[in-house]
Structures are given as C-alpha cells and as structure tokens.
Amino acid sequence: MKTIITVLINHIKSWNMVWFGLIFWGSVLNAFAAEFGLLANNPNLSYFFFLFGLILGLVAKFRGTWLWIPAE
C-alpha cells in the first residue's frame, strides 16, 4: 500500500502540471466554449480545448513553470 502511495505521489509530483493543464485548463476552456455557444454546432471542438489544455501543461512541465510566469 505504502509503495502504491509513494509511486502515486512521485507520479503526481512529476506530471502535476500536465494533469493540471489537461483537466483544469481543458475543463475551463471547454466550459467557456460552451458558454459562448461554440460547441452548439460542433461538440467535437471539446477535444480541441482539452488538447490545448494538455499542451499548456506539457509546455509548463518541460519549461519548469507556466507560460505566463518568467522562467528562472
């Protein structure tokens, strides 16, 4: 059990920004798109917003910080 928790924590520590990009920014962008009626005619656009969130997260992971924060 302890090993599973350790593996999980290490994974979250390492991939935290990627998951945050995908889930948080993906959901937020998708919700904005729905709010502005962008998904009404093309629901598949949702994939694009989640993909965009994922890319934001990946860039942040390899850059070390989010795009809007100056890198050290």
Binding site: I23, F24, S27, V28, N30, A31, F32, E35
Partner: peptide, 8 residues
C-alpha cells in the same frame, strides 16, 4: 473543475 468548471 470537472463538475463546476467556471465556479472552480
């Protein structure tokens, strides 16, 4: 954020 994205 999954259930309440704008609220989150």
């Amino acid at each position: 954020v999954i259930f309440f994205p704008l609220e989150a």
